[in-house]
C-alpha cells in the first residue's frame, strides 16, 4: 500500500479521471486522457502530439510510445477495477503492431482476462478512427501481491 494507491482510490471514487492520469508523470508527458465509454468501461485517448512521433517521414507515432500508452492503460485499468491497495507489478508485456499509428487520436481499452490470487492477465487494444481496424494489440501480466 502506498500514498499513491490511497490517492488513486479516492480519485476513482470521485471519478476524477484526469487527476489519475496527471498523477503519473510519464502519462502526463505522453498527453493521455481518460474517460468512460458508453458502457461505463474506461476509455483511454491520446490526442496527437508532435513529440510522440517516431517516424517523421510517414509520419507515424513511435512504436515504443504506443507500447507505453497501452502498458499505462493496462495498469490504470487493473488498479481501477480492484479493491486492493497493493500496487500491481508488471511482469511482462507483449505487443503486436498491426498498423502504423497515424497523426490522429489513438484510443485504447482493456479487459482483465484473468485475475488470480497472485497474477492478473490483461488484454489491451488500440485503434484510431475505426475500432475494427486495431493499430496494436497487447497483453500484460501483473503480480498482484508482494511476498517479500
Amino acid at each position: 500500500m502506498s500514498d499513491f494507491m490511497e490517492q488513486f482510490a479516492e480519485l476513482r471514487d470521485q471519478k476524477r479521471f484526469q487527476d489519475i492520469v496527471d498523477a503519473i508523470p510519464y502519462a502526463r508527458l505522453m498527453g493521455v486522457e481518460l474517460g468512460e465509454d458508453e458502457s461505463g468501461e474506461l476509455l483511454f485517448s491520446l490526442p496527437f502530439h508532435e513529440r510522440n512521433v517516431g517516424n517523421t517521414v510517414l509520419p507515424a507515432l513511435h512504436g515504443g510510445l504506443i507500447g507505453g500508452f497501452l502498458e499505462n492503460a493496462a495498469m490504470i485499468h487493473l488498479i481501477w477495477n480492484r479493491e486492493s491497495l497493493d500496487t500491481p507489478k508488471i511482469v511482462d508485456f507483449s505487443l503486436d503492431y498491426l498498423r502504423s499509428g497515424r497523426p490522429k487520436t489513438l484510443y485504447a481499452s482493456c479487459e482483465i482476462t484473468k485475475q488470480g490470487k497472485r497474477v492478473a492477465h490483461v488484454l489491451i487494444e488500440a485503434w484510431q478512427e475505426d475500432r475494427s481496424k486495431p493499430v496494436a494489440v497487447a497483453r500484460a501480466h501483473f503480480l498482484l501481491a508482494t511476498t517479500s
Binding site: S2, D3, F4, P25, Y26, L29, G68, E71, T87
Partner: peptide, 24 residues
Amino acid sequence: REDLVGNPATGVVHGGIITSLVDT
C-alpha cells in the same frame, strides 16, 4: 528524469520508457 516516472510513490521510471528504449 522526474517526468519519466511511472510510479510517483517510488520514483521508478515508467515501463513505457523501457519499451521505447528497447524498440529504438
